[in-house]
Design a binder for these strands. Structure first.
Lengths: 275, 275
DNA sequence: GTTCCGCATGAATCGATAG
DNA sequence: ACTATCGATTCATGCGGAA
């Protein structure tokens, strides 16, 4: 048994590779599956009308490999089809409940910098769903791990902050929500809400990720302890795995594309990699 | 024909009173219906399992009285029942589509100051859905009416902020999001996103509103012109009607409780009231 | 060392044009 | 008529070069 947490990426696809994993093994599953008909160039686009059908065999396996006290966080957003929001996400929630999942909560990721554009009939979409599913009503949760510091006077102060005002200290504090943590060290802390107000990662970083590392970091802190096991069945460039590694959690990722598989390997600490 | 816009509240309940209204009459329907409540004895509480069944006859009439170019904004959030988010909102969206509604968009109200509380298995809920439904793909929308100041200046400006610089002036500007207007007149503006980041109203007013007046104000500006007709089928203390009156729109409200009916009457400009 | 500014880019969507 | 492809639109962010 090593003292370092282990990180491993499996080259392959879901649900096939999931079947090789043990029952009741993971404490947290955090993933952002390919959205319907999006990123066609990287993943084979899944047609919106076929999305639920495609995902259910995967969620079936996820239910099996999750511990009874574990949590599944699904980052997803429905696309616009023919002028309407498509209903596949709503249908997926209903179908997963029939599969045995509990739909415990819906967190919201409020993106600070969303995709630009201008249309006559809608505004830019600046939020995504973070659906929380559980196997049992009683699950592990460590709310203290994600508390944010706020004093009485700072409540007033915070209400006057603009979006950009929060940015600078985010990368330093790594506590989520970008609340200029450094300035309030030693102050009393409060619990956050179910809205995460984070920026998407910019494309000109040396690695590209669809979500910022702060996102998995926050949920890993909230739902796991050190040495717990984290799974990302669509690990992509490995953002979830890197967050897990930084926090001393064991993790497994699954990724079908060799290109992303290799990028993720390079972004992770080699000493902890199990090949 | 009066030059002032008219405002009228009907004492009665839905869908009965809706049946007395004309076809294809309203440009905007904005409402926050009573939330589902499992405590049967509560007045007006609708059991979550019966919510869709209760609402469909109402949405049927709303579809009838809305103009083909009009918009229906439904402010709603599902309750937690037995540890899970109940699915009645998801089911309602699916059922309303079968009724003929288009589910065009889902706006998000990100509450700045949400209800306090502490639970072992969840955080405070600080967002609500604002579901947009339409009859036709082509609907009236006036995006310029809700533009907000560009964030570009703020990078420079915010680096040397004084305390007074931070003070917001929502009421004077009436610009929807209430984003520090006075200082940036003459600056270029940008379109907002589909997330509204507003504070809930303070409780120390003599009436309690479930949403701040800025919320209906924003949608009335976005989807109607002066003298257009606005309907709130659950008008409560009359927040939507007052917003409509302030903006020079005609409006009709429906409210079953005499107490709220009278509160709303008192909050509105009497000269424009049609009794 | 800082700060400032230019610039490329991103889980998108619509409408027109083409097959 | 129905589907596929393509250009136009837009803005917060972070990197890199310059002052």
């Amino acid at each position: 048994m090593t003292t370092e947490p282990s990180t491993r990426i499996i080259l392959g696809s879901c649900p096939d590779k999931l079947r090789e994993l043990d029952d009741n093994f993971f404490d947290l599953i955090f993933t952002s599956p390919p959205y319907a008909d999006q990123r066609k160039h990287t993943y084979g686009g899944i047609h919106p009308d076929k999305y639920v059908e495609w995902f259910l065999p995967i969620s079936y396996e996820l239910l099996r490999v999750l511990k009874p006290t574990g949590t599944f966080i699904l980052n997803i957003k429905e696309r616009v089809v023919d002028g309407e929001r498509h209903t596949y996400v709503l249908e997926l929630i209903l179908a997963m409940r029939k599969q045995g999942w509990l739909w415990t909560e819906e967190f919201m990721w409020h993106k600070k910098n969303c995709y630009p554009g201008k249309w006559n009939n809608r505004f830019r979409d600046s939020w995504e769903r973070l659906l929380q599913f559980n196997k049992e009503k009683k699950f592990k949760m460590f709310q203290e791990a994600v508390m944010i510091p706020v004093g009485d006077w700072s409540k007033t102060r915070l209400s006057h902050l603009s979006k950009t005002d929060n940015i600078r200290d985010e990368s330093r504090a790594k506590s989520g929500f970008g609340k200029r943590v450094a300035n309030w060290i030693g102050r009393s802390k409060v619990y956050p809400t179910n809205v995460l107000h984070l920026a998407t990662e910019c494309g000109n970083k040396n690695h590209s990720a669809v979500f910022p590392e702060l996102l998995p970091t926050w949920f890993i802190k909230l739902f796991t302890e050190e040495r717990d096991w984290v799974l990302d069945p669509f690990s992509g460039s490995g953002t979830t795995l890197r967050a897990a590694q930084t926090l001393g959690r064991n993790s497994i990722g699954i990724e079908p594309q060799t290109e992303f598989f290799e990028i993720a390997q390079n972004n992770l600490n080699k000493k902890q990699m199990l090949i």
